[in-house]
Amino acid sequence: MENRTGPGQRDQRLKDAYPDLVAEITELLRASQPGDPLADSIVDLPFYGVCSCSPTCEILLTKPSPVVAPWIVVLEREGEAVFFLGIDQSQATVSSVEVLDGRDLTGCLSLSS
């Protein structure tokens, strides 16, 4: 996948496109896995867009596709799964975020902003 930023443009971050989502994921990670450094890494994740495998796909890419995520972290709110975090082979980096709670993902910032 080619680089989506041109000269003089900053890299797009997930927190720039979805600040509330990043805050919620960080909060849920800290609550479910206290002390896990993965929670601190969420704020700095790059954003490569929404997966284009289908019009209804709810996966946010934090690595260029194709995403390989052999590990999954399930984050729950009130006993219901709201996010699946795809974790890469290093078990230290989130490669994708699947949003399960039906929230609207169309309001994100453009990758070219």
Results as ranks from 00 to 15, higher is better:
Ser95Leu: 02
Cys108Gln: 10
Asp44Phe: 07
Val82Arg: 01
Ile72Pro: 01
Val94Tyr: 00
Asp20Ile: 03
Lys63Gln: 13
Arg30Gln: 12
Gln89Glu: 15
Ala17Thr: 12
Val97Ile: 11
Ala69Asn: 10
Leu111Ala: 08
Leu105Tyr: 05
Leu109Lys: 14
Cys51Thr: 01
Arg13Ser: 14
Ser110Thr: 11
Cys57Arg: 08
Asp16Ala: 15
Trp71Arg: 08
Leu61Asn: 02
Val74Thr: 11
Ser113Gln: 12
Gln89Ser: 14
Gln12Trp: 02
Arg30Ala: 10
Gly8Ile: 02
Ser113Tyr: 14
Val68Ala: 09
Asp20Pro: 04
Gly49Ala: 05
Ser112Cys: 07
Gly107Cys: 11
Gly35Glu: 09
Ser96Phe: 03
Leu28Met: 01
Gly107Asp: 11
Asp101Thr: 02
Tyr48Leu: 08
Pro70Tyr: 01
Gln89Thr: 10
Pro70Thr: 09
Cys53Arg: 11
Pro37Phe: 04
Lys15Gln: 13
Gln9Ala: 11
Gly86Asn: 01
Ser65Thr: 10
Gly49Thr: 05
Thr106Pro: 02
Glu78Met: 08
Leu85Pro: 02
Arg10Val: 15
Thr5Gly: 09
Val73Ala: 03
Thr106Arg: 11
Ala81Tyr: 08
Glu24Cys: 10
Ala17Asn: 08
Pro66Lys: 08
Thr5Arg: 13
Val22Tyr: 00
Ser41Ile: 01
Glu80Phe: 03
Gly86Phe: 06
Leu28Tyr: 06
Cys108Arg: 08
Leu45Trp: 08
Asn3Leu: 15
Ser41Tyr: 04
Gln9Tyr: 12
Met1Phe: 12
Ser95Asn: 09
Leu75Ser: 06
Arg77Glu: 11
Val97Leu: 06
Leu105Ser: 03
Val50Cys: 10
Arg13Cys: 12
Ser110Glu: 09
Thr93Ser: 13
Leu21Asn: 07
Thr93Ile: 05
Ile42Ala: 03
Pro64Lys: 08
Ser112Met: 13
Ser52Asn: 11
Glu80Gly: 07
Ser65Trp: 15
Gln12Asp: 13
Val43Leu: 08
Gln12Arg: 14
Pro70Trp: 00
Glu98Arg: 10
Val43Met: 07
Pro70Arg: 04
Thr26Asp: 06
